[in-house]
């Protein structure tokens, strides 16, 4: 089957029910997307499919054929994604960093859909888990991007 990932078309040989995450990491070597819980609970494996955030560990690969997939490796090709990464660096959000690629993808999806999210909307969308507890820094960075967009 053919997959569109980061503006590139890949020929993939996988069973229909293979989780997208295994294809991305093991078959294509795009290891920026992380395996966390495998149960759609933590969000470490978040990627964008047609601009919406999905958890790659519970996404059967057959379901994303013909759709546009974006992983952390290409998030800066997106204008909003680029600003999110800059804000992440500015606020030094990452501590151990394992969950952060998923956090960046979730924040990018939120800000593309809702450029000026309220606190409640941020809390509702940023449900990825972070064992270092970087939640306050994440909130600050998301607010920063939203404010910058307002000024731009």
């Amino acid at each position: 089957m053919q997959l569109r990932i980061n503006q590139t078309t890949y020929e993939v040989d996988a069973d229909a029910d293979t989780p997208l995450l295994w294809v991305i990491r093991d078959d294509l070597g795009l290891t920026g997307t992380k395996y966390g819980c495998g149960l759609a609970q933590c969000g470490a494996c978040s990627v964008l499919v047609d601009g919406a955030v999905v958890r790659a560990c519970v996404t059967p690969v057959a379901g994303v054929v013909g759709r546009e997939i974006t992983t952390i490796e290409a998030v800066e090709a997106d204008a909003v994604g680029k600003r999110v990464v800059s804000a992440w660096v500015k606020h030094q959000v990452a501590q151990c960093g394992y969950c952060q690629s998923g956090q960046v993808m979730a924040a990018t999806a939120l800000l593309k859909h809702t450029p000026h999210p309220s606190d409640a909307q941020i809390a509702a969308a940023m449900v990825n888990l972070c064992r270092c507890g970087t939640y306050n820094a994440i909130h600050a960075a998301v607010h920063d991007v939203a404010a910058a967009q307002e000024n731009a």
Partner: peptide
């Protein structure tokens, strides 16, 4: 609804239709 969107929708879909025969 919020719990559904944050906990359930990744697999069962925002439209409640699941994913093919897997979910």
């Amino acid at each position: 609804a919020h719990t559904y969107v944050s906990r359930c929708a990744t697999c069962h879909g925002l439209d409640g239709r699941g994913q093919a025969e897997w979910m």
